[in-house]
Design a protein around this nucleic acid. Sequence first.
DNA 1: TCAGCTCACACTTTTGAATAGC
DNA 2: AGCTATTCAAAAGTGTGAGCTG
Length: 789
Amino acid sequence: MLSMEMYPGLTLGPQLIGDCFYRDREAPAHIPLFPPACDVAAKALPPRLLGPPSVASQHDASKPQKDEVKMELENASLWKHFSSVGTEMIITKKGRRMFPGLRLKLSGLNPSLRYILLLDIVPVDKSRYRFQGGGWQAVGGAEARLPDRVFIHPDSPATGAHWQSRTISFHYAKLTNNTLDSQGHIILHSLHRYQPRVHVIEARDVLRWGGGQHSFVFPETQFITVTAYQNIKITELKINANPFAKGFREDGMNSKKQRDARQKRKVSVLTETLDIVNCDPCDSAELLPQPTTTSADLQALTLASLPPMPHPSCGFRPDEVSYQDTLVPEESLDLSQAFMASQMSDIGITMTNGMQEAPGSEVANSMIERSDTMAEPAYTSSFPAAQANSSSFTSAPLPQSSSSFSSLSVPASSDTSEPQPSIPLIDYPSLLSSSPTLSSTSTTPSLQQTSFTFPTPPPSSSSSPQPLLLSSSSPSSNTYQSITETIGSHTPADASFPAPSSTCPSGLQDQISPHSRHTQTSQQLQGEPVTNGNSSPTDQSSAVFIYPNILPTNPAPAPITAQPLTNQNQAPAPSLPCSLAAHGSSTSFPFSSVPPHMQNLSFPNVSPSPAHPALHLPNPSHQAQAPCLPAGFPASFTPPSSSLPHPPFQPSSCLAFSSPFQQSVTSAASLPPAAHPQNLPNTAFSSCSTSYPPVELGGISQFGAAAPYRPEMVLHHPSLLPQLDPSLPSSTPPPALYPAFPPYPLRLCQDPHSSLSIPFRHLYRQHQHGHGHPHPQGSYLDMSTRAVF
DNA sequence: TCAGCTCACACTTTTGAATAGC
DNA sequence: AGCTATTCAAAAGTGTGAGCTG
């Protein structure tokens, strides 16, 4: 289930609402892809079908070793170096990658189950920052929260074996400050402080958000967004650490010296051009390279005057400049110097590891990023300490103890139900530096145990949203593992990731098998190692993800009945009003922002057919109020900040906080309009979490004709759910697989369009061309519009 | 006036098509 | 004909700095 902290969009504050309505106006023809009926259906679903399996959680608790999921930040040292200076991330209109990138190591996953990895970035506080006096100062309040987007790792979904067999990198994720971004990049405000988060979700649960889900936060990955670097130290660090910026190094062709020389030469050439009379062909000879020249300035000048062809004497080495050379900076680069120098001895190792990486620049980057894992410099974040007055940092709820290392079981609703004004301000840097547990090789993140129930939010009267961070009332251990509270019910003990044979007609499986094969082929073509993932018998046939139906009639899903997280007040649903299940039409749904092999979501039971009354819930207000939202949902409701509370983490600490995705919008709605999330009472479960925030598939670049780079998978938080267009004609709906609300299996397909069912193709075209939407690539299956109904 | 943003620029790396060789 | 290795050009990523904007 989506927590409001995870997906602030769930709260649908004014901003989001406005956004939704804006979209609606702009695309009047746009039909909600995700039928509100589902919300209704979800609301009507019996609690046992919607909530996270508490029983499983308890069961898992008895077997702590089984479901403990660990995540390590492989390049933690690099991050800490940056953080010690004050990490800045450039954001541009076109999107900018993060550097350092998130390089993670996962363990504790079931090798045979498939998981989806998500990255999202949330504000740390509600402050805007300015670089003053050599440091960042909070100045004023943050700008309105932007639509939250989620970046899905391109490998998703992949088996646990796959994730655990390699370094996981999110370097494809891009950050932008373009609020109208259609590329699916993560939209951030400049001069704001953010915290990346990584979520691990069982693939088959991704669309139902009911299965085990783990969220991780690494404090050292916090950064401040900028459009131009403010801190020269950061610039130097980046230049020395990022291969793409090699040209700006002292010995690079784009170094300041070289640039100055070029500029000088340019002026000189211009002068010569103008002064034709005085032009002497021999004059240029003065600038010819002098092999014996040792003066850097002269060399630079010489280089500048050289023709494009590299000259042996110019200092330009076509061969890879050794890191020894490039990483050892000038005097001014004390930080990077110390750091890089400390890594030199390990480069060989890191290179070796890097070669195992996925294709792409990651290897190059990994060469550097990995190197950081070997050394552990003293880490002191340069981010301003929380200031009671100037920064909302102070207001952020803070985990109350260092015990947050341990994963927390979802606490009782009372755990965090009280505001935490009394929580001492946490000086993030100091905490980090004082951490005794700082790992020299990796960082174990804060862990956020969340449960997804998606797309069928548990209807509940529960009104208690779950703060992202829970005060660890029961830090049971110092382990950094999360305890999957819900995985048990959804995760078969065996490794099989079943296209539930028992529930899935063979016909469908046959139908989708080609996709499965195709997917594997695609992966191979992409050079992505198809590792253990396919070794599993289940994987062999499960390229098509048929999510176990959680319908009342479907016995497959395990005992979700007794989950403590589930809203016990959920109204029983004798029948599912949601038409999705009724038709049982297998509809391919392209996630443009999803990796090619994942671009299609098959909704076996989803029928876009307008014939289904349940799909006709075009009432915008309905969405706004949602099934989960009480009628009295305050229009002026202030979206609870998803800002991360200033974590009292210790640097390597695993801040375990239960922030189940099962965030109840209802609960948010029930809060005082101005309620701050941090002050919101914590509920272990949510009633209709996912129903509300419409899942918005933000920029689906894959759909675009010209995806600038590898498919990035960014979802708008409010719309992780593929939406269905009830108005679209349903052509030859496949036989219903499930009588009731469908589980939205994922269908793997290389070409999203080819596998699209007609209705969805139409939908896609509609998005792309239909109403003149500014997004040229039509990349947005912008689920956020769902909120507009 | 100035902080912040945009864009063009030069450089580097990555990627994939084209080609050659076996 | 098929496979592998090499070459090369285009695309993409990077920080810089001038110019623009509010």
